[in-house]
Structures are given as structure tokens and as C-alpha cells.
Design a binder for these strands. Structure first.
Length: 535
RNA sequence: GGGUCGCUAGCUCAGCGGUAGAGCAUUCGGCUUUUAACCGACUGGUCCCGGGUUCGAAUCCCGGGCGACCCA
């Protein structure tokens, strides 16, 4: 059974699925994995007929702990230690820092068809909805300390309380330490040496911890959220999930203080992005937004679904990985179309088609006539080629409107890929000015073929793709050569590679004189070299 | 130093107690012309290593190696 369906099958009704994110900067594509995993669990629950909710929390009361390299250091350094919702936005498009970066992330949600109920921690705190939990955890600070010690071996001082006040004097939340609680107010100090990355101002005093004046440490805050919102399923990245890690601590706090079972949990692996070479040099790479700009939403969902949560996904936007993603997706589309109509209702799909099903934004698989991305990448690089005309000409069946929609989408992907991600040696380069080095590898048989071509091509009546293609074949036949061997010699002469777009078409875009001259040059280079060797 | 996850065909992965699988790549064959959008076939694996449990282990347990990541 597909992994998400298995979870759904084992679950009771009325599940509340939750995920959350600290909006501290641009979001890496790896963060999308959690989003999609939770979305698919939610969809699987609905699919299994178990009504459920899907929540997404924005942890915007967390402190700004570093200024990302792409922001103005001088402008933001003074806000280090501030709650993210109190840091100004990098530009006018948002009210504050947290909303700015979350906005970018939510844009990707929408793109992926992920529709959770989004809530902001600032609202939970300021509205007082977390007040009772704050009181409970402050009163039971000793139990929280115990949990920290037992689970993560982290010893807290006896007067340590699980709470941080936003300093009334300097506005920082990361630097304050609470050391007493009288039931309505806490005593806190904004310590200069509380962290090694920002200094507190030294202010101290009694103040109410309620209604947004401060926050719980996030492991404890996590527990408060679980209980307040009735969360029953929440996975976490492997980083938080290990023994003694934050999830483990939160679970212990939940059991010890609230005496309740924590939500169902399982760790998920990361997405590794190789190919850092191209991303760093060209300034494009691996933010969620950038990957979303390259891959259509279904493909991006598919990327994260076809691999089980506990297996690492290795995605690099290089030729091999990118074209394979599309090919694999199309293979499932074909498989779906091959099903007999009576299994079409999605409930009865074979397991290997489930990733395709859950990759759809609206839960409906719409088949189309696949066009291989690698082919489009090739065609786009042939000079003077009208790609849509070419697609039409090559299709065995007339393309529907939806087929064209997909085709156009894929053309954009191919263009984007060529512009932003392709390495030089992955691009098709026509050697217009010089003979490619590689022609030295040509065999005698291939040389004779090319020599023969200088004559047969010179005689071609109509310099046009079909006729040229025919001539290439006919000449190979004349010399009783294997077709692939013959074609390779042509590609090597013009592209320096063994493969290329349909050779007749390729030549038709070039001038006849140039083609014949080039072939003569190639023959020349090789015969003079042969002469040298002979001496 | 401790921990988590992974290690199966060249590559990406499935299988998770009962005769080792898929796709892609490779190779070969066909192709009076889909040669970077054809068709067909064949290859290809001490399932990381070593022990143990079992009638039987890729699958469970222990130890080790390597990799990714986390904590200290």
C-alpha cells in the first residue's frame, strides 16, 4: 500500500494534521517536503473517508538569530534577537519580516495546491489563547526542567522558567531570562551574555507573561499548540526527530506536564540538492521559489511523493535528473491511460499509480499526449526551428487543446532550464567557425561516408529537410554502412557530439556551401593526419 | 564522542521472512528514413561486510564499514 494510504488506513476519524515553519528567511526546497508530506497525509485521510483538518503554523514569535547574507546587514543587525513579527519587512510588500518571507512560502503552497488553515503564533499569543498553557508550564517549571534533563541531558538552573519576555526596554526576546513567577507576573532579566550572537540590554523587572508579552521556548510551545489545536498527526524532519532531540523533549513535556499522548509522529528525510556548482555561479539554485519556477506543480509534488518519507531525495536540476523526472511522470500517465476504463475511479488505482494521483492539484488525473523534455530541449536549440510546428509535424495524432497546454508548459520548462541550469557541455553547440576537435576520432569508413556526402549533397535538388534526410540514408546504404555509424559522423562534424536532432533538418537550416565545405574540411583534416601517421 | 536514516543491476529506486524486481542506461538486432519522439531482444546483482535467530534472511537481532544529517 502507498505510504500515505497506510497511515490513513491505520488512523481514526477526525484527525488534525499539523506542520509549521519559522519564517526566518528564504525557504529552501527541502522545507517543501514536510509541506507535501502533510498535505498528502491529509488527502489520504479524506480519500479514506476520514474527515480531517490540515493546519499550518507560522512560528513568528521566534527570534531573528542571523541576518541572511542576501539582506542588508547594517539595516537588520539591530533587530537580532527580536521576534520575527517585530522585525521590519525587507520591502513594502509586507507588514513585517515574518509575513514577508512567509508570503513567499505561501505563494509556493498555492502553486502546489496545498491548502492548509494557516495560523500565526503572534495571534495565538496576543489573543490570549495560550494564556492557560503559559500558566500551566510556569507553575510546572520543575517538570519541564526534569523533562529536559531526562531526555536531552540538558540541565537547567533551579530558577529557570520555560518562558521568554519581549524586553520592554530593547525589544529583544532572545536575551531575556525568567527567574520567578508569582501567578500573574514573572520576573525577568535581559542578560548581556544570554546568547553569544546578540547582547541583552540589562533591563529587568516584573511583568505579565500573558497576552503576547512573551513566548514559551519552542519545544514547550509545540506541546501547547498540540493541545490547544487538538493536533493528532505531525511529522518532523529527521533533524528534530532523533533520540534526545527536540521532538523527543516535546513528547516528554507533553506526557509529564499535560499527562497526554503526543501526536502520531514519524521522521522524514531531507532533500539534498547537488549541482551546487551551477547554482552558485549563476545565482540560481535551490530556494523553494526557484525550483517552483522551474518545475510545474504536479512534477514538484511528484518529486516529493514517489520517494517514501524516510528515503533521501537527491534532486539536482541538471539534465539527467530533470529529464528523468518528467519521463517517469509521463510513464505513469501512459500506464494510467492503458488501464481499462472500469478501474478509472481513483479508489481502485494500483499502488504504483498513487504518487501520480496525489501529485494532482485537484485529485483528478488528466491524461495527455506526452512530449519528452529532452527532445524539447534539443529542438529548442536548433536554429530557425518553429518548435510548435515541429511538434505538430512529429505527432502521430492531432493534439488536443489540453495536449497543447502541457506542450507549452514543457516548452517553457525547457527554455528555463536551458537559460538557468544547463552546463555548457549540455547545450547543443553548432560549430560554425571551426571543425570540432572530435572529428579526429572518425574511422576510415566514416571518412569515406563524408567524402561521398560532399558529392551527393552537392547534387541534391531541393535543399530541404526530407530530401536531405533521404540523401543521408541513401548514401549510407550505398556504402553498405550501419545507419547509426553514418549519422554519428555527421553529428561529429557539425556538433562535436555523437548525437543530435534529426540530421536532415539540422543540415537544412545551414547553407549548402557551408555544409559541403565543412565536410571537405573534415575529410581533409583526417587524411592529412593519416598521412602524418604514415610517415 | 553520542544519535537518526540509508546502503539491492551502471543510474534512480521497489521489495522488508518463502524461487532477487522495475524503469532508464549499456549491448545487440531490425528500421526504403520517428536516428536526442520507432520496434524487438539480451545482458547485467557475494541484495555493503561479518556473525546470530530460523526449515528458510535482502528482509529480524548483534557487531563492523561507508554515506547523509543531527546533537555535544
Amino acid at each position: 500500500m502507498f505510504w500515505a494510504d497506510k497511515i490513513a488506513a491505520d488512523a481514526q476519524e477526525n484527525q488534525v494534521v499539523n506542520d509549521s515553519k519559522t519564517p526566518s528567511g528564504r525557504v529552501h526546497v527541502g522545507s517543501l517536503r514536510g509541506v507535501v508530506i502533510h498535505d498528502v497525509i491529509y488527502r489520504a485521510l479524506k480519500h479514506a473517508g476520514k474527515p480531517s483538518k490540515f493546519l499550518y503554523g507560522v512560528d513568528d514569535y521566534d527570534a531573528l538569530d542571523t541576518v541572511p547574507y542576501y539582506l542588508d546587514q547594517e539595516k537588520f543587525a539591530p533587530y537580532l534577537g527580536f521576534p520575527l513579527c517585530n522585525v521590519p519587512s525587507p520591502d513594502n510588500s509586507a507588514s513585517d519580516y515574518a509575513k514577508y518571507f512567509m508570503g513567499e512560502f505561501l505563494g509556493v503552497f498555492e502553486y502546489l495546491g496545498v491548502k492548509p488553515e494557516v495560523y500565526y503564533l503572534r495571534d495565538l499569543y496576543r489573543s490570549g489563547r495560550l494564556n492557560s498553557y503559559i500558566d500551566i508550564f510556569l507553575k510546572n517549571a520543575h517538570l519541564v526542567r526534569e523533562a529536559y534533563l531526562e531526555v536531552s541531558k540538558a540541565r537547567r538552573p533551579d530558577n529557570w522558567y520555560p518562558f521568554q519576555i519581549t524586553c520592554e526596554n530593547c525589544g529583544k526576546i532572545a536575551t531575556t531570562v525568567v527567574s520567578d513567577y508569582n501567578g500573574s507576573e514573572v520576573f525577568y532579566t535581559c542578560k548581556p551574555d544570554a546568547t553569544d550572537w546578540v547582547q541583552g540590554c540589562g533591563h529587568s523587572g516584573w511583568v505579565s507573561p500573558f497576552d503576547g508579552n512573551g513566548k514559551l521556548p519552542w519545544k514547550v510551545e509545540w506541546v501547547a499548540k498540540w493541545d490547544l489545536l487538538g493536533i493528532t498527526i505531525e511529522f518532523a524532519g529527521k533533524d528534530h526527530s532523533q533520540k534526545g532531540g527536540s521532538r523527543d523533549v516535546a513528547n516528554a513535556v507533553c506526557r509529564k506536564v499535560l499527562r497526554k499522548q503526543p501526536p502520531f509522529h514519524s521522521p522524514y528525510e531531507f532533500i539534498l540538492v547537488n549541482g551546487t556548482k551551477m547554482s552558485s555561479s549563476k545565482g540560481v539554485g535551490s530556494s523553494a521559489k526557484e525550483i517552483a519556477e522551474l518545475l510545474p506543480p504536479e512534477l514538484l509534488r511528484f518529486l516529493m511523493l514517489r520517494t517514501q518519507p524516510k528515503t533521501v531525495i537527491n534532486f539536482a536540476p541538471n539534465y539527467e535528473t530533470t529529464t528523468r523526472l518528467f519521463r517517469d511522470y509521463d510513464a505513469l500517465i501512459d500506464k494510467y491511460q492503458a488501464l481499462s476504463p472500469d478501474v478509472q475511479p481513483e479508489s481502485a488505482l494500483p499502488e504504483d499509480l498513487m504518487p501520480l494521483f496525489y501529485a494532482q492539484l485537484d485529485g483528478v488525473i488528466k491524461p495527455y499526449h506526452p512530449l519528452d523534455l529532452s527532445t524539447l530541449i534539443s529542438l529548442l536549440q536548433v536554429p530557425h526551428l518553429d518548435i510548435r510546428q515541429e511538434i505538430e509535424r512529429r505527432s502521430t495524432q492531432p493534439l488536443s487543446e489540453y495536449d497543447w497546454q502541457i506542450a507549452n508548459q514543457r516548452i517553457s520548462v525547457a527554455q528555463k532550464w536551458l537559460a538557468d541550469y544547463a552546463d555548457e557541455d549540455e547545450k547543443l553547440v553548432l560549430y560554425l567557425d571551426r571543425v570540432p576537435e572530435k572529428v579526429k576520432d572518425l574511422t576510415h569508413e566514416q571518412i569515406s561516408y563524408l567524402r561521398q556526402l560532399t558529392h551527393s549533397l552537392a547534387d541534391v535538388k531541393l535543399w530541404e529537410a526530407e530530401e536531405l534526410q533521404t540523401t543521408l540514408f541513401a548514401t549510407a546504404k550505398e556504402l553498405e554502412m550501419q545507419q547509426p555509424v553514418a549519422f554519428k559522423s555527421v553529428y561529429l562534424s557539425f556538433l562535436g557530439k555523437e548525437r543530435g536532432p534529426k540530421a536532415g533538418a539540422l543540415l537544412s537550416y545551414l547553407e549548402r556551401d557551408f555544409v559541403v565545405a565543412r565536410l571537405r574540411d573534415v575529410v581533409q583534416v583526417n587524411t592529412s593526419q593519416a598521412a602524418l601517421v604514415a610517415e
